[in-house]
Write a protein that binds this DNA or RNA. Structure first.
Lengths: 219, 219
DNA sequence: GCGCTGAACATAGCAGCGTTATGGCATGTA
DNA sequence: TACATGCCATAACGCTGCTATGTTCAGCGC
């Protein structure tokens, strides 16, 4: 009895889901408080749509977190892979910071609440970009052979996230981000990279981030 | 007419203020949601007390943030000043992490909301501990003469905050904190410290944090 | 083509939230 | 002692997320 699940019902419209997420992201950008009623106001859909598609507001926030990770992931994908892995690693960090500062509210949503287990794959996918660059750096001989790519990636992420959260939602001014290259150089040279080559690579990667993939959307 | 402000009224009881803050901190630790009514329930005071003392819930959260910075400050004060500034700097970082992980919810409150300008002095006081240690490290010749203590302090803070927030409220496991010594060493040696001395100093400072000043309070 | 099933959606109402208006009452001055 | 002041308790308001109830409509068996 290979009876597949029988769908004899009205299918839920996927357009409604994306509509709500995009509207929520827009309200986030506009710094408007996102409430159930204000979210659906003007969209023509009713409050119940949030429950059929997200099972409540918590589910909406989680979907918003995933959307944030997705956008961050596509942003990191635009960073070109060059023949200089250290430069690429710096460029990834710069892109990370740029993305977080362009969408500070979305970034806060991503890391505010205790991350659900549902979000871990998305976060891992983000981290994977850094891991690959770190591995290429090691295989190219820039880092010592005993450098674990995952660990270097985590350390780079720590610097990026520390800077961003102290600046975007924290007490430090924006100039604090200028410490980024120095800290990355300190980390990379501690992993074995030559100081002069490292300085040049980080300089290049830091100041030439890929353009933002901002999905501009007319009101 | 040196007419001072005339106080002819019932003075507000400062005990009520501290009672509410302590109760809020306790509820935070117990992971109970803090609502106006649940906060005053059982205390004998009414909801209006929150408004006379804090001008509403926002003021209570702000007071809670300040309380968090105060506790962090006294915690950092317990870190002894030794003749090894690099060791002290590592010990301060370790104490910072320890404090944040023993009171993760309070830590989140401190950095969750966009920091009010009211909170800046408290954050600066925290940072000042690190600045002093960094300055002593430079004056003792461990760091290069061109190292700016404030900048090194900010960089150390970035590492500590990055680690803590990725672990406490973020997606990374607790073992991630073990990267702390390596990252601090990378930073300090990049500032001119001798690698071997640095390794020894960081090792000592990291693994001997001062005891927690937890104000244990019977229920 | 027709009726049935069941999920998607709309509406109305609920408990709970933070806030505010009102009034009694304790307190320090004259 | 009489008064002015502002803390505190009570009750109500608008708003929140959520749920119970009814309606609509896509897809399948006949």
């Amino acid at each position: 009895m290979a009876c597949s699940v029988q769908l004899v019902a009205r299918p839920k419209d996927p357009a409604v889901r994306t509509l709500l997420i995009e509207r929520a992201a827009a309200m986030l950008r506009a710094r408007e408080p996102i409430t159930l009623r204000s979210l659906v106001a003007g969209t023509g859909v009713s409050t119940m749509a949030v429950y059929t598609h997200f099972e409540g507001m918590d589910g909406l926030w989680q979907a918003l977190r995933q959307e944030g990770f997705t956008r961050l992931g596509t942003r990191l994908t635009t960073v070109p892979v060059s023949d200089d892995p250290v430069r690429d690693l710096a460029a990834l960090a710069a892109a990370y910071l740029d993305n977080a500062l362009t969408h500070p509210d979305l970034y806060r949503v991503m890391f505010d609440a205790s991350v659900d287990l549902e979000d871990l794959p998305a976060a891992d996918a983000t981290l994977e970009h850094l891991v690959q660059a770190a591995r290429r750096g090691r295989d190219a001989g820039r880092f010592r052979a005993d450098v674990v790519p995952l660990e270097l990636a985590i350390q780079s992420w720590t610097i990026g996230h520390g800077l961003v959260s102290l600046v975007a939602t924290g007490p430090l001014p924006r100039e604090t981000l200028d410490h980024g290259p120095f800290m990355l150089r300190a980390l990379f040279t501690a992993c074995g990279d030559d100081p002069d080559r490292c300085r040049a690579s980080v300089e290049q990667g830091w100041h030439r981030p890929a353009p933002d993939d901002e999905r501009s959307r007319p009101a």
